[in-house]
Design a protein around this nucleic acid. Structure first.
Lengths: 207, 207, 207, 207
DNA sequence: GATGAATGAGCTTTCATTCAT
DNA sequence: AATGAATGAAAGCTCATTCAT
């Protein structure tokens, strides 16, 4: 009996996650208004009525989705440490590449994309997600720049106060790339991001 | 009587534009599925039935909106010429600032934002808009870089092949800024963009 | 054109009444929760969507029904005058009979019957209807008793303060009669009411 | 172990009653369609699934409720005897008062009130309950009148054939009183019923 | 051309009922 | 016997679309 209870319990515990996972896809594809709960249910392999055993309304499901995802960060703040004492430029390039890949695929970023359209309907969510996502990212980049300065590679500059601009090309590419219809947009993006990192460190000016 | 007919005619000619303008706001606010034609009509000051005299379906209206807007460019290619023979860095800063302001407010960019969510439903529109918008922007930036090289200020670099990264911070800020809930996000963005332009030209490296 | 507008207008003006009439039947038959708007629409010969052009919600329709009916009285207060200077007992009997028939069929009373079950959900409606209906009835009965006293037929009694008890048998019969399943319950009720009127005037006591 | 079995047995025997008691409240409050079995279960302190161990369907529960209650009478037929040889008028007044109080609170009468709305859906129940309730009442009243005649206080009258009219004011008050919203409706009703009893015996006529 | 009443497909949500545990 | 997760029919309500006027 312990066995059966555990099995059932496991099911009950997993359901919300399964539903939210299915909902994420549906919302991402169709936005809030366009998402159909029947379709969410179908994706989750359950009946639509079951959704209501776990979420009171469509909006509650939507909010739960965000609440659940905005604890795990875009990238871990410790990411910089992982690179040992590599040159700044190498670390920057590596981080931008990873960030781009995450931005292109992570669930948190999919949710941000949804918010780009729905934020006027959910201003509280928008704000919270914005802070969570960009706050983490900014801290990480600041740490990286400090590392570069400490290592004697970088000169202090006004960028120190707006480190997020370093991520902009990656985020942008992740957002708009799919719209291009090009099959190789991800590779192109990575090349551009590499070039960006390199040039940004060296400067565009003629030496 | 000639008078009234002419007036009517003018009315008739203006109607589609009025409707599309109203539709833009509504779609931007609520996405495709969430937009209500009744609300579009109310914004345009007409009855919802009238919309159907000009557009066959909601989707047709949506498409017409994009078709109409993606002829006028984000910025004119000639923009660079307007700056005479100013230093490259000055022109870059000026252009990035203008581009940001346009990205934050121009109708074409509002439509791009809509597509960020709806592109899977309208892949053809997405592709066309992407090409139109970023193609123009890329050409302009390439022209700018050529100008800098010709003027002897810039060294050739890998950026020459991916000039769009220069716009990324502005676009990003325009997209995500409103989500922050900060009342002064536009000013902050302009500061960051200025810093970005400056640093990018000079480079982050210690001289 | 005046013609056509008038015709359409007439339709538009009549719709709410038609819908409310259909709704009355449906609510009377099934109560608030049990009534189905689709069925209301079917009764009214329209589509269910049309109901929402005139009433925002099911509850709004329910309330409108009551608001519309509780202006016309159960019986007119002038009813007593209509009997000229007939003997009190004759007038009483006549009035009780009419009141019973109205109670058995008038729309206002059908609505009261609905409220007998739904009053806890609509306390404001219940109170308003109660006052309107029984207030009118009480005034009429008081007038009748005054008439009997003035004519020298009646002695003042404690009934003068609670004249509604005179209507009780009629109302009761109207409410419960149908439940009996007897085909002749209306005739039986009228006989009982006659006997009641007669006995009430004469008294049960042995002279 | 004998102990626990007996306890369980007791539980099992009591369950149907507990459920029906909870159901009575729920049906009374919301009618048949509006009553929710989940709510019934909550009132009874059990899970809604358990209800189905005792009643096949919602309708079966509804019917069982009525079947169970319409054996115990509104008032006992022997009630009259209990008054010894008091004067007729005293007994009448006492009985009407008791009847009113029962009508205001007894479960049987609550069920009758439910039937006032649902009788068209359950004509068989309505008929059975009607007969049971009013049959008992009628027999009691007839017995009372006979007692009055036997005691030499009353003259025979047409009321002898329709004794239920004597209960009408009480039933009426019990039904409609709560709708008035007046906090003292019960007291008012009792005063009216007293006045009714007194006047009915004496007659309204001037002696 | 303009209107807005009417339609009905389709959505979210509820809840009686089932059944594995 | 008791539970409550799952189901899906059915209801309220919305809104794109039609069409008589």
């Amino acid at each position: 009996m312990d066995e059966t209870i555990r099995k059932r319990q496991r099911r009950k515990d997993e359901r919300p996650g399964e539903i939210m996972s299915a909902a994420l896809q549906e919302f991402a594809l169709n936005g809030f208004a366009g998402a159909k709960l029947t379709q969410v249910a179908r994706r989750a392999g359950i009946s639509h009525g079951t959704i209501y055993n776990y979420f009171d309304t469509k909006e509650a499901l939507f909010r739960a989705l965000f609440r659940a995802h905005f604890v795990e960060p875009l990238g871990d703040e410790q990411m910089v440490d992982a690179f040992g004492d590599a040159p700044f430029a190498d670390i920057l390039r590596a981080i931008l590449r990873v960030a781009f890949r995450q931005a292109a695929h992570s669930e948190a970023v999919v949710l941000m994309r949804i918010l780009l359209l729905e934020w006027q309907r959910f201003p509280d969510l928008a704000e919270e997600c914005y802070r969570e996502l960009f706050g983490k990212a900014e801290a990480m980049l600041r740490q990286l720049i400090d590392y570069g300065i400490a290592r004697g590679e970088l000169a202090p500059s006004r960028i120190d106060d707006s480190p997020l601009v370093l991520l902009a090309p990656g985020i942008n590419a992740a957002l708009f790339g799919p719209l291009s219809g090009l099959p190789d947009w991800e590779e192109r993006a990575e090349i551009a991001i590499d070039a960006f990192a390199e040039s940004f460190v060296r400067g565009l000016r003629k030496p």
